[in-house]
Amino acid sequence: MTTDTDPVLAEDPITGEEIELPADVEVGEIIDSPVTGTELEVISLDPVTLEEAPELEEDWGE
């Protein structure tokens, strides 16, 4: 019986490993992967699916 505060399980898109996410995670939210630290975007819930967040656009200046 899962309560709504149990962590949610999802697959880390880079390493394929199963990772735990906060229960209240929402679609569109950006979270950092506990495995790689990479920023991931929540694409959908039930099941929770994740994608690598768009590459941070570096301010290249010059």
């Binding site: 790689t36 630290g37 990479t38």
Partner: peptide, 11 residues
């Protein structure tokens, strides 16, 4: 520590 392309300042 493996630190590679995560978010924040120290990526």
């Amino acid at each position: 520590r493996v630190v590679s392309g995560g978010g924040g300042v120290y990526r």
